[in-house]
Design a binder for these strands. Structure first.
Lengths: 140, 140
DNA sequence: CTTGTTATTGATAAAACTTGCAATAGCAAA
DNA sequence: TTTGCTATTGCAAGTTTTATCAATAACAAG
């Protein structure tokens, strides 16, 4: 992302600032295919931005996640991973072999609407991880 | 949980051992209502078991989660929380005020079966957290 | 372009979590 | 009961993540 992306204008409207650090992190996420962990992001960003701190990485990722510009996912064990918000999707992960499939958001839309009816809750997090066994691992 | 719970026999059958540490942690989780964080669990367990280490808490929680005896949940920001596997349920959490509702597993059963049809994946993790806005926070 | 406000960063320390390894202790089998 | 195997623990060091706070720098307004 650079200055002309729509997110930029939007952030400013909210009273937030467009810092080089935020732009760099978003740029890395945007050009990445799939998930990145905080340390992966750090190592990529620090190359073009020697001053970058890990603390800033964590703070910025939390901030961007709250703003909905990036998605947080808890895929498997260990650290959380982040990815740019592009198309609404979810993950289906094999606990055995780690294989990962994407689930289109449309498949959950009906469920979300049902939650609204049942509980009055309006779902907005958009990202859900389901764990299971892939067909191969079920056989073993 | 103590020696006579069914989990005990099952663990032994798998070749795992029934240690006082595991029993104590399970006992704390069993008598707790709702979620506990690792440090909460530690502070409770260490009272009756002075030797208990935090490293053991983390290792044991991961172990019990892998075995399916406890559920891990990512409720809100910050650390993961754990609870005993008793009735299958999920969580619906308000991102604004933190209010939490339980969702019965039956509401997701159809979805899980659909995943099996579409992808061949058999869901086994049983615990999913949905984030959204509760009715009150939607008005503001 | 200059200035003032304050959101954001960097640096540091603290907290949370993980890992490696030698010593301990479950428990199966004799 | 006693013995042997090895899963598990405790300890200590290492890594990851969060919190604090003074200094910096976006950006709106003059």
């Amino acid at each position: 992302m650079s200055e002309h992306y729509p997110e930029s204008a939007w952030l400013r409207e909210q009273g937030y600032r467009l810092t080089p650090q935020r732009l760099a992190i978003l740029e890395v996420l945007r050009s990445a295919k799939g998930h990145l962990s905080p340390s992966e992001i750090y190592h990529q960003v620090v190359q073009d931005m020697p001053g970058m701190t890990e603390a800033t990485i964590y703070r910025t990722l939390n901030f961007l996640a709250e703003q909905g510009l990036v998605l947080v996912a808890h895929v498997g064990r260990g650290q959380l991973v982040y990815e740019i918000t592009e198309h609404d999707h979810h993950h289906l992960i094999c606990k055995q072999c780690g294989d990962m499939k994407e689930i289109d958001h449309l498949q959950l839309k009906a469920l979300y609407e049902q939650f609204l009816d049942d509980t009055g809750y309006q779902i907005n997090t958009i990202h859900t991880t389901f764990f299971g066994l892939c067909p191969d691992c079920q056989r073993k």
